[in-house]
Amino acid sequence: MLIRTNNLKKHFSLGKGQILHAVDGVSLEIAQNEILGLVGESGSGKSTFGKTLIGLHPRTGGQAYFDDIPLPANFSARDHLHYSQLMQMIFQDPYSSLNPRMTILDIIGEGLEIQGKLNKTDIKEQVSYWLRRVGLHSDHMSRYPHEFSGGQRQRIGIARSMIIAPKFVVCDEPISALDVSVQAQVVNLLEELKQTLGLTLLFIAHDLSMVRYVSDRMVVMYLGTLVESGPSDQVFYNPKHPYTQLLIESNPEPDPNIERQRKHKPITGEVTSPINIGPGCRFADRCPQAMEHCLTVTPNATQVAEQHSVSCHLYTD
């Protein structure tokens, strides 16, 4: 396993003794050359998990391993320098994640410059190669971010993280801000890079159909915890956890005949606050199948099929 987390936690202190449990005990594994999809609604902690994993947030508890080497809970500047060569991130918003005052050459080449292994000419050559590789022109490097469209900027962001030749990349909602026709360009590019470079990806998104399409396995997050994990098609077509079931039932299909047949019974209520959470299943207050002990006992992950596990009392004896 290239990436492994064990009971990873990230809490934010809000003052006055209030604690926000953004990520609250997530254990997962990502194999070499695998795309793991991470789905969840806003506030489920999926972005925080990705950032904590690669050291952008200090960890509150639990362990994380890269290639079986334990990652520090609190990255020092030296750790960042070391691990940023192995783990990179692609951000959601291609507008705010590129410095508007830097040229494309400086943006994409910055990582190599910090590494200090290459001289300016070599860096330029690398930037030029990566611009072409992501479908842009090498003469784009003297331009500034505002001269590019959203899809092009996202490809600049991809080039910036790929030029380091990382082993593992966290893609935090890389296509949410893009138009449909452009989303496919970016997704296919990521897929191609995975194939040719042997990359391992954590693909964070809220678009269920896209996550199913892109990833080999997917995990579903709710209020800081994993509720279900398994092979993508299995989780999508045969969801076990009541939350996953409702999530997939709410996901509309671009097909009128299917929509006409669908029974619409929206999930009631909204995600509860992740502040000062007590014991019990976090979905219990919205769950149509909640039982008494769901409110008091936290469910553990139970295996329901090969590689497919669910954290729900319906599946424990």
Binding site: S149, G151, Q152, V180, S181, V182, Q183, A184, Q185, V187, N188, S209, M210, R212, Y213, D233, F236, Y237, E253, P254, D255, I258
Partner: peptide, 22 residues
């Protein structure tokens, strides 16, 4: 537009066809 979106109905994974350009 339709072929640029993933469909969950066919189960067969057709590769997404992006629309080139802008």
């Amino acid at each position: 537009l339709k072929s640029a979106m993933p469909s969950n109905t066919g189960r067969g994974d057709k590769r997404l066809q992006p629309i080139p350009g802008s």
